[in-house]
């Protein structure tokens, strides 16, 4: 049985994360190259939508990641509130900007796709609308975290918020869907409009892997920076080889 708590101590996590970051960068580059190749060259031109549909290779994985990252944040928050590990808050904080980035990317690519498809930048589609609300939830988390001075308190308050958010995300999604059917908004759904060919599915999955590796690389880098900032006065930071070299 591996002692997971050992890894959750910043002093052990910091060098470990340092080793993992280049690995994930490499993975992100490889998967990204394969995914984009499938997206641009392997996947066939869509009969109705032409070449424009190819943006879904960014749009769909970005939406997946934005939801997935919020769940991961909630998971770390639960861990942090129950066990009081310092790492949890740092990881949640490190993940939030990337989650917000993917939510924004999803909205932006959705709008870019919507313009040629529906002739409008924005439709009150259930998915797009809940994605927008998710984006607001990310912004709320970051604003709350930034507004509390004491980092430990900020972490714990943010943890409660992300748990409240994760309970609400499905409720918000279904309410928006319900609202959408009542008002008979856009009937064309973004992902199901084209019959999903298996090459397209593969392309999106591989792009999702690329985004996942990118998220890990960036979040770990950010977590390392947060660790140094918060634990600047501790012994283990003073004994870090990269710190001594700089001094």
């Amino acid at each position: 049985m591996i002692n997971w708590f050992k890894f959750s101590a910043p002093s052990t996590f910091y060098p470990l994360a340092g080793k993992l970051v280049p690995v994930f960068w490499l993975l992100a580059a490889i998967f990204g190259a394969i995914g984009l190749y499938i997206g641009f060259f392997v996947a066939p031109t869509d009969a109705q939508q032409g070449e424009g549909y190819r943006i879904i290779f960014i749009h769909v994985p970005a939406s997946w990641m934005s939801m997935f990252i919020y769940c991961v944040m909630a998971f770390w928050s639960l861990l942090g509130l129950t066990f009081g590990t310092r790492l949890s808050g740092m990881m949640t904080t490190a993940l939030a900007p990337t989650g917000a980035l993917f939510a924004f990317l999803s909205l932006w690519t959705g709008a870019l796709w919507g313009k040629p498809m529906w002739g409008t930048w924005w439709v009150w589609d259930a998915r797009l609308t809940s994605e927008l609300i998710l984006f607001f939830l990310y912004l709320g988390y970051m604003a709350l975290h930034a507004a509390i001075d004491d980092p430990r308190r900020a972490d714990r308050a943010g943890a409660v918020l992300s748990l409240v958010g994760v309970v609400n995300v499905p409720i918000i999604y279904f309410s928006v869907k319900w609202w959408n059917t009542l008002h008979q908004g856009a009937s064309v759904s973004l992902t199901k409009s084209a019959s999903m060919a298996s090459t397209m599915l593969w392309g999106m999955l591989i792009m999702a892997l690329a985004f996942w590796a990118y998220t890990l690389a960036v979040a770990l880098m950010r977590a390392r920076a947060i660790m140094l900032e918060r634990e600047a006065n501790t012994e283990w930071v003073k004994h870090l080889p990269d710190i001594r070299r700089a001094a």
Partner: peptide, 17 residues
């Protein structure tokens, strides 16, 4: 201001129903 930013998105289902 922060209260509004945090709470209004969570009000969506209540508003809709």
């Amino acid at each position: 201001l922060l209260v509004s930013l945090l709470v209004l998105p969570l009000y969506v289902p209540t508003l809709i129903f």
